[in-house]
Simulated assay, not measured.
Amino acid sequence: MEQKLRLRTIEKTDLEFLHKLNNDPDVMKFWFEEPYMSMEKLKEAHEKSQNSTQHRQFILALDNEKIGYVGLFDMEERHRNAEFGIMIDPEFQGNGYAGKATKLALEYGFQQLNLHKIFLFVAKKNEKAIHIYEKIGFQIEGELKEHFFVDGTYHDAVMMRIFQRDF
């Protein structure tokens, strides 16, 4: 029997899982953020997000197991664009879930939200992720030199985008 990968809305019961991801240095370095998130701060952010029209956040589930987090952020109503972000639990990395989850998020963003453009930032040295995004149809828009500070050094990043018409 084939397992089903899907996106579902985040519930309060998911906050422990998100807390684990947000405090994992190996996960957060790809978000260019410090792995430092208290449960209280996470609860507060979850409450605020319930009424947000600018963000859509999902748990990536494999059948009923939580394996990651996917989000569309800072949606611009007039310009119809949003930033994409994804976290895969390290226990489930390397199984092709990132590409499939990205496609699910793009389908949602383009078909449900009628977004025109979805963009992302990725570390230039993360060639594996860039390759996955390019296979899906993202194109590089530009490079940001020494843009993010992680683990004591500055890192270059690439901004990538995909238009609705190209998906």
Score class of each variant (00 low, 15 high):
Phe32Cys: 05
Gln50Gly: 14
Phe149Trp: 11
Gly99Met: 02
Lys43Leu: 06
Ser38Arg: 07
Glu44Pro: 05
Phe58Asp: 00
Glu16Phe: 10
Arg78Thr: 15
Leu72Arg: 01
Glu143Arg: 10
Ala105Ile: 00
Glu33Gln: 12
Glu34Thr: 06
Met1Ala: 12
Ile67Asp: 02
Ala45Gln: 09
Lys20Phe: 06
Glu40Phe: 10
Met75Leu: 14
Phe58His: 00
Glu91Arg: 13
Arg56Met: 10
Gln111Cys: 13
Asp74Leu: 13
Phe119His: 09
Asp63Asn: 15
Ile10Trp: 02
Gly85Tyr: 00
Lys135Trp: 10
Tyr133Met: 07
Leu60Asp: 01
Glu107Asp: 15
Ile118Arg: 01
Met1Gln: 09
Ile140Met: 07
Gln112Asp: 12
Lys135Ser: 10
Glu83Phe: 01
Ala101Pro: 01
Gln164Thr: 12
Asn22Asp: 11
Glu40Trp: 07
Ser49Ile: 08
Ala101Glu: 00
Asn51Thr: 13
Lys48Cys: 01
His46Tyr: 15
Gly85Trp: 01
Gln139Tyr: 11
Lys128Asp: 04
Met37Gln: 15
Arg56Trp: 08
Phe17Leu: 12
Ile130His: 01
Ala101Cys: 11
Gly96Ala: 07
Ala123Asn: 12
Met37Pro: 05
Glu141Cys: 04
Phe92Thr: 02
Ser38Phe: 06
Glu134Trp: 10
Gln3His: 11
Ile118Phe: 09
Lys124Tyr: 07
Glu134His: 10
Ala45Pro: 03
Glu107Trp: 08
Asp74Lys: 14
Ile130Asn: 00
Gln54Phe: 13
Glu77Gln: 15
Gly85Ala: 04
Glu16Leu: 14
Asn51Leu: 08
Lys20Gln: 15
Asn81Met: 08
His155Ser: 02
Glu2Gly: 11
His79Met: 15
Thr153Cys: 13
Val158His: 00
Phe92Pro: 01
Met39Thr: 11
Pro35Asn: 07
Gly68Met: 05
His46Leu: 07
Ala157Gln: 04
Lys145Glu: 09
Val150Thr: 05
Val70Ser: 03
Val70His: 01
Phe163Ile: 14
Lys66His: 14
Glu65Trp: 11
Lys124Met: 08
Ser49Trp: 08
Phe119Arg: 06
Gln139His: 13
Asp24Gly: 03
Arg80Pro: 02
Ser49Tyr: 08
Lys103Tyr: 05
Phe121His: 04
Lys124Gln: 12
Thr9Leu: 13
Glu83His: 02
Gly152Pro: 06
Ala82Trp: 00
Ala105Lys: 00
Gly71Pro: 04
Phe149Ser: 05
Leu5Thr: 05
Met28Thr: 01
His147Trp: 14
Met37Lys: 15
Gln93Val: 10
Met39Leu: 15
Leu7His: 03
Gly137Met: 10
Leu60Trp: 02
Ala61Lys: 05
Lys117Glu: 14
